[in-house]
Design a protein around this nucleic acid. Structure first.
Lengths: 235, 235
DNA sequence: CACAAAAGCGTAATATTCACACTAACTACA
DNA sequence: TGTAGTTAGTGTGAATATTACGCTTTTGTG
């Protein structure tokens, strides 16, 4: 026996929802599709799963092809399998979402795919069911970020607490009390204070912090509560 | 253009991790595989995705074939895509997990698949990567149940609070203070007290409760806290 | 009619969360 | 050189939530 008989085989794709933060706005990395159909339309970055490749490998390959980056935070989100989601033929898509420090990426911007960072509030129309994927990804990001410290993945290695707060406020589309926010964040003891300050954004200057990677990994699964009244903010 | 060229197509399967609770123990519904290879070995219930079927439809079809049940709580868990996970040929599997009131099912037990409820602590060896799937499912169930009231799906329509507590204690493999537990559960106002008592399990008897379906649906996404110190219990 | 066993209420100590006043640090510009 | 203006970040207390544990209630059993 070498194969299962009487069953239908289909293409499997991997699509990446890539979030970035530029210090002010949360953005999504989109491309203009190079393949027919829908050539020229906006799309998530994706690719077909190859014969000898695992899903994680495929997602990383796709991400690297677009951004040049490796070792990026990425997690599997959901499989999309509506029979007609791709009009050409049956394609199952496994969506991954990735979080990137946007500045790291900008250095190696490749024009090959006509990629662009698009403000999360100003998304263009997307092909197939990509809009739904993006919506699910946003929801999942909000959900997860309310409980776990993943948003650090969107920031550079050194960042200030006000920067972090702006990021959280962007994700939840609200504002937080800065005094409570910094106290909460610091009480996790996940941050290591640096000697230098960032003076670009204020007169007083805010101290830089770095993530304590060891504690970050050790406590990743623990429930945090950076967000007041989280359940009201998750839609 | 009718198809994408130069890409490899593969089989897609759906596997179901089916949890049940019999009032004392948490169990998993397993089958003895009817297909070669590994015929006769223990396995999760699964099936291949058909040409015109969505993933949800496939998962529901598989579940119904085994249990006869429809409208069961089910959610997509994760896609498994290691190239060699099935030795016959490349098969991508999308795992779903389902929660069933075990008594509802037992009535319509079908012997066709040699299905059996197996105590979650006494699982046999499973084929392929099914063990990993089960572990992931257990983890996800613990995670989700710590925040959302999904465990009610494992209970009959009428249940007592001590029964509910036994269920939670089974899931988290620990014990809770019964006085605090019932107060927490009742404070959600998700339960409607019935007039009758269950006297099978105690002399005093415990009142039956029903879920308030409306509130249950409305508050499903809100974070609850049935579990003391949840983050310590999630592994 | 005691006794055992489980249901479930009460309460106080502790911890967490939140709102808001206030001080500190620093730049820019007069 | 000093003062006005701006943002960072600490302090504090009130409100809320969590937890530990004593105690009463109910009822079948012998």
């Amino acid at each position: 026996m070498t194969r299962y008989t009487g069953e239908s085989r289909m293409l499997v794709a991997v699509d990446c929802i890539i979030f970035g933060f530029d210090g002010t706005d949360i953005k999504l990395l989109l491309i203009q599709r190079g393949l027919k159909p829908e050539k020229g339309k906006w799309s998530l970055m994706g690719g077909f799963l190859q014969e000898n490749e695992s899903l994680e490998q495929a997602a990383n390959r796709v991400l690297k092809k677009l951004t040049g980056l490796e070792g990026v935070y990425m997690e599997q989100m959901k499989a999309y399998g509506e029979p007609l989601r791709d009009p050409v033929e049956r394609v199952l898509s496994i969506a991954y979402f990735a979080l990137i420090d946007i500045h790291q990426y900008e250095k190696q911007l490749s024009t090959e795919y006509h990629a662009e960072w698009v403000h999360i509030k100003k998304l263009p129309e997307l092909i197939f069911d990509h809009k739904k994927m993006v919506e699910n990804a946003k929801k999942q990001l909000r959900y997860k970020a309310a409980l776990h410290p993943i948003l650090f993945e969107l920031l550079p290695a050194k960042f200030t607490i006000p920067q972090l707060q702006i990021l959280y406020e962007g994700i939840y589309d609200t504002t937080f009390d800065n005094r409570n926010f910094s106290r909460k964040v610091l009480s996790t003891e996940l941050l290591i204070k640096q000697k230098e300050k960032d003076k670009a954004n204020s007169k007083k200057g805010a101290f830089y912090y770095k993530l304590d990677k060891r504690k970050y990994k050790a406590n990743f699964q623990a429930f945090l509560n950076f967000i007041p009244n989280p359940d009201k903010l998750l839609l």
